[in-house]
Amino acid sequence: MQCDECGKKPATVHITKVENGKKTDIHLCDQCAMQKNVLSLSTNFSINDLLAGILSSGAASPIKLDPIQDTKCAVCGLTYSRFKETGRFGCSGCYMVFGERLNPLFKRVHGNTAHTGKIPNKAGGRIKVMREIEKMKQELEQAIKNEEYEKAASLRDRIREMCKAEKGDVK
């Protein structure tokens, strides 16, 4: 099938239009389709458009915002309603300002809401200890289940010690 427009190249884009109940078929080659802009939807569609779609669908943002009370990031000035349109943050401060209401979005995109990977050395000391404690708590549970009481007791003591030390650090 040849292109309806130029009549030279083979048609690769097929469009069916229904207007006022009347159906018309159009067959175009790549180039003519580009020129007629019929493919512009797929070329200008970014990941952020999709995210914006999720954000404004309601399901991801259970808190309906009063436009007047819209949250604004103090560092870069991005508002939550603008974020919902663009799907992009303005700075790291936005995460703190928008806070927990981001979790439904993260859940949708990643299936998770908590980071489990690398920790920067600078920020890391406390987080690393907390993760270690968390891991030992799980081991403790497992030990109790398996009736390994000696192991459980030693784990319990170590968790206590680490929690104490951790609290001491915070002061």
């Binding site: 992009r88 943050f89 993260f106 908590a114 980071h115 600078k122």
Partner: peptide
């Protein structure tokens, strides 16, 4: 490389969400 660079600047990082990025699809690691 990340470790070397981190010594000279403070990264945007959050305990809950990890490394903070412009696009939500990259947050975490």
């Amino acid at each position: 490389m990340d470790d070397a660079m981190e010594q000279r600047m403070e990264y945007a990082y959050d305990e809950r969400w990890g490394y903070l990025t412009c696009c939500p699809t990259n947050v975490g690691t």
